[in-house]
Design a protein around this nucleic acid. Structure first.
Lengths: 231, 231
DNA sequence: GTCTATAGTCGGATAGAC
DNA sequence: GTCTATCCGACTATAGAC
C-alpha cells in the first residue's frame, strides 16, 4: 500500500519516518517547555530531522502541536478503552448490580493507576495533558472529548450504581475526587519523591499506592450507600 | 513626586511602586506562559512600568521569577499558617486524641478547599505552583519548604493520629490522596467546568465540594481505624 | 528612578538547490 | 523529501540621557 505522505492532508499520512519521529520528539519537547517556549529547532534536533520538515509535514509549529496532542490522546485512550467499552456494554444491558459496578470501578481505577503511576512513559504523555489543563488551548477539545469526558462519565455512572443512588451532581463530584486521588501521584511526583524519600515509583510502591486508593474507594462507596443490602 | 505618565498603565498609575507591581504582574504572566515563554515585555506592560525596571529591581528576568515564586509561597503559606501552628502546638503538647486529630485534619482541609476552590485569586497563585510541579526549577525549593513539606507533614500526622496508627508510609500515602481530592478541583478546573456544566465555582458549589471531601475523609478515617473505640 | 535607543541573540518560516 | 541559506521579527539586557 502506497502512503501519500504530504501533499494536501497531513492526517492521511503516517508512515513517514520523519513524521513519526517529530511526533515523538514533540511529546517530549512540548511537554518539557510548553508550546511557546518549545522551539522547532529543539524538536527537529531531537527527532534527528531537518527543521524544514516541520512546516513541510505539519504546516508549521502549531500544526505539529495539534498532531502531538491527538497522538497523546490516542495513547491515553488506549490504556482504558477496553474497560470503558466493557462498562458501556454492561450499562446498555441494564442489569448492572452494585457489586459489579464497584468491581468495574475498581478495574478502571486500576487501569489508571497502573498507567499513571506504574508506567515509565506516563510522565511524557501526562505532561502534555497537564499543560492543557493548566491553560487550555484550542487543542484541549481533543483531550476532553477523547479522555476526560468518557472517564468522568464512566466513573460517575459506576459510583452512582455502586452506591445505589441516581446519577447526580454529587456522584460527579465523587468521581472527580477518585480521579484526584490517582492523578495527585502524577502531578505531584516531585513533591512525593522529596517528601517520601523515593527515587521514582517502583513496582512495590505502585502496589502500595494502588492498595491505598482501592481500599479507600471501597470503604467510601460502602459508607455512601443508603441501604447496605445488595441492590 | 509622582509624575503622570503616558498611560500604558491601566490603573491610575502609581509610579512609586514598580517593585510590587512587577511581582503582581509576574504572577499572572509567568503563570500563564511559564518562565521561558513569558517575556519581560509582557510583564512590564501589564505592570505598567518600563522594561528596564526589571533588571534594575530584580537583576533580570530570573531574579524576578524567583521573587515571584517566593511571593506566591508566602501567600499560600498565609492561608494555612494558623492551622498549621495550632496542629504543631497540639502535637507538641502530646495529648492529642483521635477525635481532635480528625477535627484538626478537617480544619486544615477546609482551609485548603476554601482557598483552592472558593477563592477568586487562587488560580493565579496555583498556576505558579503547578508549573513548578510539572517541571521543577531551582525555585521549587522555596515552594517545597514553605508549603508542601509542612502540609504533608501535618496531614500525615493527623491521619496517623486519627486512625490510631503510627506515622508510616501508608499514612503519608493517605495524606497525599486527601490532598489530591482537593487539588483536582483546581488542576482540572477546565474539565470540571465542561463536565459539570459550571461556569466557575460558586459559593454553593464550593460548599458541595467541601461536603463531599469532608464526608469522604471522615468515613475513610473511621474505616481505617483498627479499633473503633474512641482512643 | 525612569526613560529611549540599541546591541546582540535567537525564534519560525521560506526559497530553491539537489 | 531533505538540505542550506536567509529573511525578518522578537527577545533580554545595557548604556546613558534626564
Amino acid at each position: 500500500m502506497v502512503v501519500d505522505r504530504k501533499t494536501t492532508s497531513p492526517k492521511g499520512s503516517y508512515s513517514s519516518n520523519a513524521h513519526g519521529r517529530l511526533l515523538e520528539a514533540g511529546v517530549d519537547v512540548f511537554g518539557k517547555h510548553g508550546f511557546d517556549a518549545a522551539t522547532t529547532r529543539m524538536i527537529a534536533k531531537k527527532a534527528g530531522v531537518n527543521i524544514a520538515a516541520i512546516p513541510y509535514y505539519f504546516k508549521g509549529k502549531e500544526g505539529l502541536y495539534h498532531a502531538v496532542v491527538a497522538y497523546v490522546a490516542g495513547k491515553l485512550e488506549s490504556q482504558v478503552k477496553s474497560t470503558l467499552y466493557e462498562i458501556e456494554g454492561r450499562v446498555a444491558e441494564g442489569n448492572l448490580d452494585r457489586k459489579e459496578a464497584l468491581s468495574l470501578l475498581e478495574k478502571l481505577l486500576e487501569n489508571m493507576i497502573n498507567f499513571m503511576v506504574g508506567s515509565a512513559e506516563a510522565p511524557r504523555f501526562a505532561r502534555i495533558v497537564l499543560r492543557e489543563q493548566l491553560y487550555p488551548s484550542s487543542a484541549y477539545d481533543i483531550i476532553f472529548n477523547r479522555i476526560m469526558a468518557p472517564m468522568i462519565n464512566a466513573i460517575s455512572k459506576m459510583v452512582a450504581t455502586a452506591t445505589g443512588t441516581s446519577l447526580s451532581r454529587i456522584a460527579n463530584l465523587r468521581a472527580l475526587t477518585l480521579i484526584g486521588q490517582v492523578i495527585v501521584f502524577r502531578v505531584a511526583r516531585e513533591t512525593m519523591v522529596r517528601a517520601l524519600g523515593l527515587k521514582g515509583y517502583s513496582p512495590e510502591e505502585t502496589a502500595e499506592i494502588r492498595g491505598v486508593i482501592l481500599e479507600q474507594t471501597r470503604t467510601t462507596i460502602e459508607a455512601m450507600s443508603p441501604l447496605n443490602g445488595n441492590q
